[in-house]
Nucleic acid binder design. Structure first.
Lengths: 110, 110
DNA sequence: ACACTGTATTGACAACTTTCGATATGATGC
DNA sequence: GCATCATATCGAAAGTTGTCAATACAGTGT
């Protein structure tokens, strides 16, 4: 039984996953995950200087990671005086969950 | 009210997120997401050649992405004759969900 | 205006990723 | 054995990312 041919490609939507990939890319670093987890557990916002204190990274590197999280809309920030306070975006968890639902959506059962 | 000092660093577990980051890194590419979505929607396993047919990538590149998914334990594979068939790992979705739960775990409400 | 503090940006470098062509491995059929 | 097909691995090129030192920017207090 050797002439079995390989099945045809699935006609999946093309660029749908480019957007999700951006999201997951933002999650694909331990330091950024630490920042997010800290924000998720915080009562209110957290000052940038807390992260520069708490992470084994220099200030510009922390700023870099915060920017990536901002651009992925996972966090928001607000300047108050000299300090900038970050908080988790309201829909952060939901947006990730939605990406996962799209990814793993079950085929329709007949 | 200016002498407000920045709060102390949260004593979060250190290496907990290194593992999660590996998972998310595996998800951080559109082609790998396409592969996973295809597997999630498939009734049974899918032959490698389907991916090489269906993706705008050469065979070695597809193989590379499949390896990354394998090493993240998101997929499993089985050789049958000349062909190798891939399927979604049973706990793929659960492992991701667990990583997210750890990430976003709410602080304990008093 | 100036000095000072906290944060962001720039520019550079090393490390890692994605991609491919070439080659190797593994299985089938003669 | 040899030819053939499917998949994996290797090695190199191009692109991206994480990091830091240096610098710029923004706000405060004098």
């Amino acid at each position: 039984m050797s002439m079995q041919r390989c099945c045809p490609p699935k006609g999946l939507p093309r660029e749908v996953f480019t957007e999700s990939a951006v999201l997951f890319k933002a999650l694909a670093d331990p330091h950024r995950l630490t920042i997010l987890a800290t924000l998720a557990r915080a009562d209110d916002e957290i000052c940038v200087c807390d992260f520069t204190d708490g992470l084994p990274l220099n200030q510009p590197t922390v700023s870099h990671h915060l920017r990536i999280l901002r651009e992925a809309d996972l966090v928001t920030c607000e300047r108050r005086g000299t300090w900038v306070y970050y908080r988790l975006a309201d829909d952060a968890r939901n947006r990730i969950d939605r990406a996962l639902t799209t990814l793993f959506k079950q085929k329709v059962k007949a």
